[in-house]
Design a protein around this nucleic acid. Structure first.
Lengths: 117, 117
DNA sequence: CTGTCGTACCACGCCTGTCGTAGTATTAAA
DNA sequence: TTTAATACTACGACAGGCGTGGTACGACAG
């Protein structure tokens, strides 16, 4: 069965997360659910991968963390919102994706290598 | 300037190399030149990356190394030919690429994030 | 009132692939 | 004789992903 290997989306986890923050802030658990449903269960991000991406991106200034004000119950959630730098990074990554796609597809052929010719 | 980051094609260097071996055996230097020209200078694989990919793929049984018989001069070249397992791996990677492309593109939007909305 | 499940997060440390640096060796041109 | 192109190798650092395991809360079952 064909499934996505981690090396492939390695460079795009950050982009995927940023995409889900474009419109509104969110938090880890919600984002992981969204990735799962939006990808139609094709890609399920690992928790550690997700949270380490948060840490890294906050350090890089692409996102900012805050706590929900009307959080009265004990469940503490760390929300993240995208920064301007994050939006820029996202845009850049989208451009890069187009280029990468072009390049990779020069080396992908449906007919060739598939079976025996 | 938009250029391909190593993390992005990380999972596809092996695939790219295998593609260039589908029709005929080749060797490191030639393959690196072909990647450069075929990608229109967009992607230049690092030597160390290339040669370590060879080692890894030979260990995995995707390629086999041999020396050119009519090598009369001193320049020793290690040629590689793709194996059946290698062809299978390539085919699988092509299928995976399609899936990855679908998934990633759900999180890529040209209009969104580009600028300010 | 104990157990389990779902939510929400974090620390630690390993693994793999990439890449920087540097070195060897040959041939051909300048 | 020095430089450039060809052809390859060794070594070690680094970053991102991920396995493992732990904390903590609420809800609901038995």
């Amino acid at each position: 069965m064909v499934s996505i290997s981690s090396d492939v989306i390695r460079g795009y986890n950050d982009t995927i997360i940023l995409y889900l923050l474009l419109d509104k802030p969110s938090y880890g658990y919600e984002i992981s659910k969204q990735i799962k449903t939006l990808s139609k269960e094709k890609y399920v991000i690992k928790e550690t991968t997700l949270y380490s991406a948060f840490t890294r991106m906050e350090k890089n200034g692409y996102i900012e963390s805050f706590f929900d004000e009307d959080m009265s119950n004990g469940k503490r959630r760390t929300y993240y919102r995208i920064t301007e730098a994050g939006r820029q990074y996202y845009t850049d990554k989208c451009a890069e994706w187009k280029l990468t796609k072009e390049v990779v597809e020069r080396f992908i052929e449906e007919e060739k290598g598939n079976g025996n010719n």
